[in-house]
Every structure is written in C-alpha cells, then in structure tokens.
C-alpha cells in the first residue's frame, strides 16, 4: 500500500532518530528565536493517548523528503486493545439518548471549528493546498453539524410499524451494529476520516479507526478534539500505522461487528471481505473519490451501520 513517497516503508525508524519534527514547527531555528515545542503524535485508545505498545513508529515526510513527524506504527495488540475499549464503550454509548448524542456531535464540531487553523496547517504540511485545506476543515465542521442533526432523526426516517395480520403490535427500529472497524480513506486525511467516523457514532456504534497512513496528522489531532468534546472514552479509537499490516486484523477480529473500508483498491477490498466472513461481519465498502458534498454524507451512511430489530407483542387484555 505504501505507494506514497512521503511514507517510509520501514517502521523501525532508527534512521530518523533525532530528526526534528516539523509538524508544529515552522522553520530552522534562528539565533534568538524561540524553539517551538514539537508535538508527539500518539494513538487514541479508550480516551487515552498511549504510544503504540510496539514501540515502533514511521517517519512521515513532506514532499521534500524531510521528516514531518514520527507516527506511531500501531500494532495488532494496539488494535486488540482498541477493540476492547470500543466494546467497553458500546453499552454506554448505545444507550445514550439520541438528543445527547446529537449534542456531543455538535460539540465536536464546535471544538473543531475552534482549532480550525491547526488542522489547516496540518493538512498543508501534508501536501494539501492552503485553499483546499481551509475548505476541507470547514466542510468537516459542517459535516459534524449535519450528523449532529441526524442523531435524533434517522430512527424516525427508517423505523416502521408493520401492519401484521395477526393480533400483534409489530415495529422495527434501527439499532447500532456494535463495534465497527474503519479503514479510513487514504487520500482524505480529515474530511474522509470524519465522514466515516461521524455516521458510525451518530448511529450509536463505537469504532476503531485506522487513519490514512500517508495523512495521519489530522486523525490524531481530531482524537484530541474528541477527547475534549464530551465523547465518552472508547467510542472512537484511532490508530495510525500501516494498512497493509492492519487491514487483515480490522477485517478478521471476531469481536468486531462490521468493517468499513473506504477506498477502491480491489485487492484490499477482497482481502477485507474474505476475512470479514470469519464471523459474518458486515462489510461496508465506500469507493467514492470525493467526500465533498452529497456524495460524502447522508442518512444512508448511518443506516449502513445499523441492524433492524423487529419486535412483536400481542394486542389484547
């Protein structure tokens, strides 16, 4: 997968030891100038920011080949821990009322808006033009607001009272599938990421997300936004690392109910679908190349992550 020249295929990272991290730093130090404090990009599991248990990282480089940051190269064990956290968070999140879920989604939007410039800068440093970066950040904020509004409405659109012929009251409602693993789109580091996370959690699922390998910065910063937005621990868990290494884990884990693959690599899709069959995992493949506008959002993105539950009860005395 590592076709992007910005990403080193190596994960040991010894060659970059001591390299300055550029992501939060502007230029080489000049005399008298203040040394900026570089950010360490960690992963996000159960509401905490641990380093990968593996101790591995990979250098993220800019176009010129200079190292922007060292990114955690998440491991199978990190993923396992993240699934435990997601499963642990599911009972609480899935019983959080829709109004509150909507408010939390809206809160994420608020926090992201406030930190917008940081995200623009991160996108730019990862190679996105300034103008596009600015558009992407505002679109992401708006997307979160959009789903905040859906939280207490999709159920009404998609549930049903079914007119059965017998003396029973019968109704179908949507329920979250449970824990969803998400292989985020490779080429849209913020909007694509959030366009997959937001509908899943709006629909009361919890998730484990693998960020774009080549554009991971916003994912971790977004985790910081989540952490400060009343999103309960475990609802969203974000790993960075190699999709080549982790996609199989994301697809095969027996305690994951659904896997979302955003991307159009046929071989990867096949790998994911094949391994998903282990536990009859639901597979959701999103092949759109653009996450902007209506192709990147809608109530059907939520519905994709829902089970339909039908309940029967006699009508009598």
């Amino acid at each position: 997968m590592d076709k992007d020249p910005r990403v080193s295929a190596r994960h040991a990272g010894n060659d970059t030891a001591g390299a300055t991290q550029k992501a939060t730093r502007q230029a080489k130090p000049e005399a008298g100038a203040r040394l900026t404090v570089a950010k360490t990009y960690k992963i996000y599991i159960g509401g905490k920011f641990p380093r990968t248990e593996s101790g591995r990282y990979y250098p993220l480089r800019d176009k010129s080949g200079e190292v922007i940051a060292n990114i955690c190269s998440g491991s199978r064990k990190d993923f396992r821990e993240a699934v435990v956290a997601a499963r642990g968070g599911f009972a609480n999140w899935s019983s959080t009322n829709a109004y509150l879920r909507g408010q939390i989604l809206y809160r994420i939007a608020e926090m992201l808006e406030g930190r917008g410039q940081q995200f623009v800068a991160e996108l730019v440093i990862q190679g996105v033009s300034k103008q596009r970066a600015a558009t992407e950040v505002t679109a992401t904020v708006d997307r979160l607001v959009y789903y905040a509004g859906w939280a207490d409405k999709y159920q009404q659109v998609f549930s049903a009272v079914n007119p059965v012929a017998s003396s029973h009251f019968n109704f179908s409602v949507l329920e979250p599938m449970g824990v969803i693993s998400i292989l985020a789109p490779e080429d849209s580091g913020l909007l694509g990421l959030v366009s997959n996370i937001a509908p899943a959690i709006t629909g009361a699922n919890t998730c484990v997300v693998l960020a774009s390998t080549s554009m991971p910065l916003c994912a971790i910063s977004f985790a910081e936004v989540l952490e400060s937005s009343d999103v309960p621990p475990g609802v969203v868990n974000i790993l960075t690392g190699s999709q080549d290494e982790l996609a199989g884990q994301f697809a095969s884990h027996m305690d994951v109910n659904a896997v979302i693959h955003a991307g159009s690599d046929g071989e990867r899709i096949k790998e994911v679908q094949l391994l998903a069959a282990n536990n009859i995992k639901r597979t959701i493949v999103r092949t759109q190349t653009s996450w902007v506008g209506e192709t990147g959002q809608g109530p059907y993105f939520i519905k994709d992550t829902q089970e339909t539950k039908t309940t029967w009860h006699p009508v009598g005395a």
């Binding site: 079914n162 059965v164 019968n170 179908s172 029967w312």
Partner: peptide, 8 residues
C-alpha cells in the same frame, strides 16, 4: 410469528 410486512 411471521408476516410478510415484518422484517426478518
């Protein structure tokens, strides 16, 4: 119980 109107 089963019914054509009821998802299963």
């Amino acid at each position: 119980k089963f019914d054509p109107t009821s998802p299963f």
